[in-house]
Structure formats: C-alpha cells, structure tokens
Design a protein around this nucleic acid. Structure first.
Lengths: 221, 221
DNA sequence: TTCATGCGTTCAGGCAGCTGTCAGCTTCGA
DNA sequence: TCGAAGCTGACAGCTGCCTGAACGCATGAA
C-alpha cells in the first residue's frame, strides 16, 4: 500500500513514517503543502495522513482539492488535542477519520486498518440497491436511467455507514456519531431527515426502519 | 456464554444482570474497577458490558488494559446520553459497540446479539420454527415464502425469551419480568395477547400452551 | 460587493403502527 | 357440566417516525 504522509514536524513525521513503513507500506513524506500537491499530482495513493497545520498553507486545502477533483483517496487528518473545530472542519471537508496529537502509534495503526478496510470493502465490486448502482470509491451513484444522482456529504456519510455492514442495524445515536464524530449531542431529528432524503434519491425501499432501534439496508434490494 | 457486567449503579446493574441472565448467560457482576480487573484476570469472558463511570477509576482503563494485552473479548460500553466524548474515546480504545443510558433492554439484547454474532459465539443461533426461519441477531424472521415478517419490540422480547431455552416452560410472570423492567406489574392479560399475536405471525402451532404453567416452543416444530 | 445556489439543520403537523385493556368467546380438566 | 384458564377481535391512546417547509450559512459566480 502506498501512503502519503503530510507532516512538517520532523520528529513526529519520522516516527509515523517508520511505523507505517514497518506495517509493510511504501511511505512518501511531504513536508509542505507544495510537496504534497506535487506528490498527489504525480501518483495515486491508497491513504493520506494529513497534518492540518503546515508552514506554507493549510492542510485542509489539500483535502478540499482532492475531494473537488472527485478523488476519494482515504484521508486521516492529524490535529492537536484542542483543535476541535479543525477536526470538524476536516471531517466536513471529507476526511475519513482523525487522530489527535500526540499521535499514539497503536491508535494510528487501528485507524489505518479501519479506514482502509472500509475503503477496501467499498472499493470492491460496486453495490446495487434496487436499480441504483453505488460506486463508493468514486463517491458516485447512478440511477436506473444511467444518470448520476448527486449525494451531499452527510448523505454519503449515512449511506457509507449503512453499507459498511449491510445486515446490521445502525442506531440514530451511531449515525450522529458518524456524522459529527465530536461535539454537542444534537437534539433533533436530523438523522430522520437525511434518511428521508436518501430514500427519495435511492428509492423508498432501500432503507428499512427498525422501530426503536434504527435503520438498515433492506435485504431485499 | 459468560458475561462480565461492570456497573456500580445497583438498580441498573440488577436490571441488566437479570435480563442478560434470562437470555441464558452466566453473568459476573463487578461493581468497581478493581473487581473487574480481578474477574478479568481470573477468567475468560465472552462479552464485557462496561460502564465507563466507576467510583474507583475510569472504566476506559479496563478496556485499554484488555486491548493492551491483545485481548479481543467483545466489549459494549454504557454511557450517559450526553457523554459523547466518552463514547468516542471508548470506541477508539477498542469497544465494539455502545449503549446509551438509560439502557433500553431491547436494544441491549439486539446489541449483544450483533456483537457476539460478529465473534461467532451467538447468544441465540438462527433457528427454524416450522417453515419460519428466525435470525435473532439480525432481528429478522423470514416466512415460508421468503418474505420478511415484521415483529414489534414486545413480540421480539417474547420470542427471544422462548427461544433462549427451547425446551423450557416460560411462565406469564417471567414474561412480564422480561417485558417490563423491574416488576412493573401489568394488570391484564398482555402476555396472552402477545402470544396470540405471535401465533398469528409464526403459525398456530409454534407456541404451545402448558395450561396453568406457561408457554414453550413446541417440540414438534 | 451582491446575488444565487446548495447544504445542513430545525420545526411542526400528520400518521402508521405499537401497546395495553377489555369483553366476549372457546377450550380444558375435574 | 361447570368453573377456570386461555384466546382473540376491537379500540383508544400514544410513540416514534416521516416529511414539507423554512432559515441561516458557506460558497462561488457575476
């Protein structure tokens, strides 16, 4: 697996690179935004480990650029402990997960596994839901008429969560965690609203309600 | 299956212990971190139900200790509704799932099934009743025609109880205990009504009446 | 700058299905 | 045959869920 590490801190960068390399990966280490952009332009990576604080710009722009180009390469961001807003911004911009500095290498490993597993699972053959085809790796879904159906970030987050274990029931609380990862408990029906919107786009029967417990992908689609 | 319950609240602990025990499991109840560590050192468990708030320390340390010892025993954490950060910390530390307090016993049951199923040791294996197939871990039952049969929460609770020890007779009082936490006596024939409803869905002969004693799954299905 | 657009979120009204209760009936066993 | 136990259709109240609408905000274009 090829990993791009974007980190200006020499000490942390070295520790992470060594650790990730030991897991059997090829690691490119970019110290600056410019380095990172060049690397991303030159090659395909299986994972990006992204420090948001860089000397020559904001790492968030790198992430946004990726997603703007419809590049779904998994990105794990690394932020300082107290930079909650950064973390949220990162997740909103399309990061797959985050790590809090100081980075615990065991946790890093777990996150990498989790993210790449999620990615690997979804990158496998595309999923069919009724007449809809889903290409999670390209963040694209196509309707029966062959036309692209646009999903927003939140809608994707929900669908991802449902698809990650198709037979499992996902509770609203879990959705909220997946959607917000952090921050105040949202006392609202946001999840219901998104389920409703997804249903409108994917078809009424794709998402099944399990009253009192949550939602799941219907086994019959 | 052997379950370790780590919970200092007497009331909640008792309700959970009773419920889990009724599913046919052996339950060890640890009230403190120390208790829990001792139990974990002394025996192997198939599942840990872990309250993170303990009088003598943080339950998270128990989880971290497990994982540090590369012990993959499934852990479900229980947190208060507003302790999102705790929950995330728990999941990051390697918890398999979480429950939000106040604990809903139906949800507890569903999560236990899901988690233990993931690990192969299912509390209630899938089972055939006449032409009906029951998948308790997925909260799904499928009729002879292959179509899903919807069961309400109460109906599931009843069926679970009957299936947990198939040859046993379950009295109405036991059902009431399983259905309503903590001896909230119901002044009616609710159990009879639910048995009736279940029979309509599963088939007349699946549940057998033992006059004066209770009900059981018919040995002939 | 202003404006248009899309997204995320909140709210309220409505509704379907769940729940507990009862009445009247059937079945069982002595 | 009679009384007790169990069964079930009906129903009202309630809960959880659904969804249209509206608003604030960010983004990007003009």
């Amino acid at each position: 697996m090829r990993v791009l590490l974007v980190e200006d801190d020499e000490l942390l960068g070295d520790a992470v690179r060594t650790h990730v390399a030991r897991l059997g990966n090829a690691v490119d280490w970019a110290r600056t935004s410019e380095d990172a952009e060049n690397s991303l332009a030159a090659a395909r990576f299986d994972l990006v480990l992204l420090d948001l604080r860089l000397p020559d710009g904001h790492g968030l722009d790198i992430l946004k650029g990726l997603r703007a180009r419809r590049d779904a390469t998994p990105v794990i961001i690394m932020t300082a402990h107290d930079q909650v807003s950064e973390r949220i911004a990162g997740l909103n911009a399309g990061a797959d997960d985050y790590l809090v500095k100081p980075v615990d290498l065991g946790e890093l490993q777990a996150r990498i596994h989790a993210v790449t597993r999620r990615y690997g699972a979804s990158v496998l053959p595309e999923v069919s839901l009724g007449g809809i085809r889903v290409y999670p790796s390209e963040r694209r879904i196509v309707g029966e008429d062959g036309r692209d159906i646009g999903l927003s970030a939140r809608e994707w987050a929900l669908l991802d969560r449902l698809l990650s274990r198709r037979q499992a029931i996902v509770s609203k609380a879990q959705f909220e965690d997946a959607l917000y990862e952090f921050g105040a408990e949202v006392e609202s029906n946001t999840v219901e609203v998104y389920v409703s919107r997804l249903r409108r786009k994917l078809g009424r029967d794709v998402i099944e309600t399990v009253r009192g417990l949550g939602y799941r992908i219907s086994p019959h689609v």
